[in-house]
Design a protein around this nucleic acid. Sequence first.
DNA 1: AATATTGGATAGCTGTAGTATCCGATGTCA
DNA 2: TGACATCGGATACTACAGCTATCCAATATT
Lengths: 219, 219
Amino acid sequence: MRISELAERSGVPLPTVKYYLREGLLIPGVATSATSAIYDEGHVRRLALVRALAAQGLPLEKIKTVVDLVDNPRDDLFVELGHAIAALPPYVDDSAGPDFPRARRLLERLGQLYDPRFAAVAQLEHALAALEAAGLRMGERRIDTYGRHVRAIAEVDLELLPTRSREATVEAAVLGTALYEPVLTAMRRLAHQHLAARRFGSDEPPTTSGDPATHDHRE
Amino acid sequence: MRISELAERSGVPLPTVKYYLREGLLIPGVATSATSAIYDEGHVRRLALVRALAAQGLPLEKIKTVVDLVDNPRDDLFVELGHAIAALPPYVDDSAGPDFPRARRLLERLGQLYDPRFAAVAQLEHALAALEAAGLRMGERRIDTYGRHVRAIAEVDLELLPTRSREATVEAAVLGTALYEPVLTAMRRLAHQHLAARRFGSDEPPTTSGDPATHDHRE
DNA sequence: AATATTGGATAGCTGTAGTATCCGATGTCA
DNA sequence: TGACATCGGATACTACAGCTATCCAATATT
């Protein structure tokens, strides 16, 4: 297909497709002449990936590192995967210290590997520091609960990860990380509302079926 | 304290403090004359809150709605709380359709209340749509697993929510939603790496201290 | 009295993510 | 074969967020 069809098929405005080509987010089509190139399903897929990541707030520059990785996976797959996933929000400057004490405490309590080279360790440290800056501290009860349930979730994630090819694995892992996270946070918010409606039962207790007129089930 | 001390104490550059005052993110200090006003600990706390939310990528405009709510909670607390939390990323245009079929399917499967007016429902729908756009679909196994464990996490969240005052509850709920989410996502990423290292054994097999073999922590 | 700081206003800067316009080459159909 | 649309590619412009800098006159401070 030609570029205009690619734009149409993917729902991305043509000037934006050109922009992505300029930025290297999309590999150029096969040029058939000075004024035409053909694009294939792979380009449609790539465009969907880019838009999906962008919709999650990932800067194009980071998306570029992700798609580069998907295109040519490195030997040290999981190290690189870690870095690719680290490119996902929230961003932290991994320039930070050689040690991440809050993250270390949490991971050691959970009996998990603490390796400061994992980008997610810096993210965790950053998140815990933000918590402290706001006057909160993550207690042991919360650490244990989160740890147990998050690990159970991660186990299923790993189980459901395709392994048919390295490229498919990388793409699914990156996509899954980026795209299931908002699902999880939305689900947590809804669980809060669901439980809070019962616990605090504001004006009207929720009737789980029917009656969409019932309101105030917020957290 | 005066504005310069406030800036110093909070670590926020003075021009930025002024900017936040302009934007209404910080209530003005008590003016003692035309050229001086005094600020207190509440301002330091507020500044920490604003920066904590901003560090999570929340636009200042949304932060404003949150701090406004913290300052003057409404009567219908949980409704407003839902709206405040809806102001947190990811943003969706809740102008969307009157029905959210993907979210509905998921919630019904989990036996949870489906109410399209919940902002988080629109977020969930948005996230599930992004998944589909990328060629993924959330299977029943994943739905069930996520649902069970997310609910367990939410139960603890609710338990640990302070109830000593309405304002404290609102602030803790908003802060907790905003600040524990990145903790959860970082923990999930680390759990992935922890498990993946074992399963796929990358170049450097991480020698965990205790190596607590894969326990299945499902309840 | 000399100097510094304050609150307040206005203007400018930087980065991200696009849009818009122009171009000359080329494909398409009458 | 010629008229005209479309193409790939380059350059320029725009919109918005989030600061940052400068200026000012009134007031503290020393």
